[in-house]
Design a protein around this nucleic acid. Structure first.
Lengths: 215, 215
DNA sequence: ACCTGAACACCGTTCAAGT
DNA sequence: ACCTGAACACCGTTCAAGT
């Protein structure tokens, strides 16, 4: 569906009248974000990808900001569909597995990282769909089996969610490959590492805290 | 020290030869970021603030990116100096107070929020100074009084730090005033609110988890 | 109706020229 | 030595003109 960017000097052909669409534009934008990053997504870049004029995009999106927000919404929905459902094991095992999967999914999805780190301010709120609501209800049911009342369950689930999303966001802002390491001792440098182990330690503490609160 | 932005149409006077400095440029940049936001900080804007030509800034900073990174470093150091030291109360009380103060300091410091949300990728790593190291040592000593060994203390302190910085970062990306509220029930909407209470719940769970691990 | 290039007001940055 | 405007290659967006 995606056209390669044109490198030849011949003038491109005019696109047929009904050939452009919101879907194709979002597809091309996603491709640019995944391969080059959000900061290299410009209307001219995107137009070259589409083989169209940059101004044609404005028939489908009122502004670049609106386009990026539509893209972000799509990416968030796509990620939620890939998230495995909560299973039937003991609540603490399921909770740990659920948020570990969530973190890994986010951390390996370049478009998500680009959009959450540099994208629209509203990004954090995009999750508020009915599908997200269903996932939340599943999480609350799970925490009910741990003995938490509704209010405590909401607070606990929110804490895990905030920890996970915040961790991924921090990590995405911390990935600077060419950076010299700090001068700290080897065992202290861990404080600035954002790998899966580091994430797991914190998540385990949260779950231990929930367990303590439940009993 | 800061000049008001000029609004008159008369051509501004040429600045005297030694009158510009890194310090004055950073001061003016901080003022723009605090009052207008990082995205409205441009070289022309900054130059108007300084009453200089935009190109003069390049004698002191090789690029806008370098300027913003220098500003970010300064802001992080300033925040750390305002952070109250860890006291002598019981470890869980001190830990809660320390990270609550930290969160509030970050959340009320507009320049920090702008820079962490939209600033240089390296921002998260800027904290790695000797002063930060001293604060970390204090935290590890505190957790030692809870009965944690060195490794567990590092993991626990890191978890609290990541939770706090991640929460503030998420919150700063979620502040969209003109946004219509979600259609969810009122008691579920809490999951998308990033206030001090929400933060405290998670921090309390983390600390309860540390307590459970220590015994 | 949809697609288009020219044009506008910006931006970061370079550079030769002022003082 | 330091400060400067002109100039360059970009960007988002508007709009009148093509097809």
């Amino acid at each position: 569906m995606l056209l390669d960017e044109r490198v030849d000097t011949a003038p491109r052909r005019r696109r047929a009248r009904g050939s452009l669409s919101r879907h194709e534009i979002l597809d091309a934008a996603l491709h640019v974000v995944e391969t080059r990053g959000l900061r290299l997504l410009s209307m001219p870049t995107l137009a070259r990808q589409l083989g169209s004029g940059a101004t044609s995009i404005y028939k489908y999106f009122p502004s670049k900001e609106a386009l990026v927000e539509a893209l972000a919404t799509q990416v968030v929905q796509d990620i939620r569909q890939r998230l495995p459902p909560i299973g039937v094991r003991k609540w603490d095992v399921e909770l740990f597995g659920y948020f570990s999967s969530f973190r890994e999914l986010l951390a390996t999805h370049r478009a998500y990282l680009e959009l959450v780190a540099y994208g629209p301010a509203a990004f954090v709120h995009l999750a508020l769909t009915e599908d997200a609501r269903r996932r939340l209800d599943d999480g609350l049911d799970l925490l009910a089996t741990a003995g938490l009342d509704r209010r405590a369950a909401i607070e606990a689930f929110t804490a895990c969610l905030n920890y996970t999303r915040g961790f991924v966001l921090l990590a995405s802002r911390a990935t600077v490959p060419g950076r010299p390491g700090s001068a700290w001792d080897a065992d202290l440098r861990i404080i600035d590492v954002f790998d899966a182990d580091q994430f797991s330690h914190g998540l385990r503490l949260l779950i231990a805290g929930i367990r303590a609160e439940a009993t």
